Computed example of a mutant assay.
Amino acid sequence: MNADQSCQLWVSDITYIRIKNDFQFLSLITDVYSRKIVGYHLHASLATEGPLQALHMALGSLDCLPDGLIHHSDRGTQYCCNQYVQVLQSYKISISMTEKGDPYENAVAERINGILKSIFDLQRTFADQREAAEAIQKAVAFYNTVRPHTSVEDLTPEKAHALTGTLKRLWKPKTYKRKQNNEQETKNLNGNSASV
Rank of each mutant, 00 (worst) to 15 (best):
A3P: 09
T15P: 00
I17L: 06
R18V: 15
I19C: 05
K20H: 14
D22R: 08
V32M: 04
Y33K: 07
K36Q: 07
I37D: 00
I37G: 00
V38G: 00
G39K: 04
G39R: 02
A44E: 08
A44H: 07
T48C: 13
T48E: 09
T48H: 08
T48R: 07
E49I: 13
G50R: 02
L52N: 00
A54T: 05
L55Y: 03
L55D: 01
A58H: 00
S61N: 08
S61Y: 04
L62C: 03
L62H: 04
L62Y: 04
D63S: 05
C64H: 09
L65S: 06
L65G: 01
D67N: 00
D67Y: 04
G68W: 00
G68N: 03
G68P: 02
S73C: 03
S73I: 01
S73G: 03
R75Q: 15
G76T: 11
Q78Y: 06
C80S: 13
C81Y: 06
N82V: 10
V87M: 06
L88C: 05
L88W: 01
S90C: 01
Y91N: 08
I95N: 04
S96F: 02
T98W: 02
T98D: 03
T98Y: 02
E99K: 01
E99S: 01
G101F: 09
P103N: 10
Y104V: 02
E105R: 02
A109G: 06
E110Y: 05
E110V: 04
I112W: 00
I115K: 09
L116H: 07
L116Q: 04
S118D: 15
I119L: 13
R124F: 13
T125Y: 12
D128G: 09
A132K: 00
A132P: 10
E134Q: 14
I136C: 12
Q137M: 14
A139I: 09
F142G: 06
T145Q: 15
V146R: 15
R147I: 11
H149L: 11
S151Y: 14
V152Q: 08
V152N: 07
E153S: 15
D154I: 11
T156V: 15
T156L: 14
K159Y: 13
G165Q: 10
L167V: 10
L167S: 09
L167R: 08
W171P: 09
W171N: 15
K172G: 03
K174Q: 14
Y176D: 13
Y176C: 10
K177Y: 11
K179L: 10
K179S: 08
Q180S: 09
Q180Y: 09
N181A: 15
E183W: 07
E183Y: 07
E183T: 10
Q184D: 07
Q184V: 07
T186N: 13
N192H: 10
S193I: 11
S193M: 09
S193R: 10
A194R: 11
V196E: 05
V196F: 06
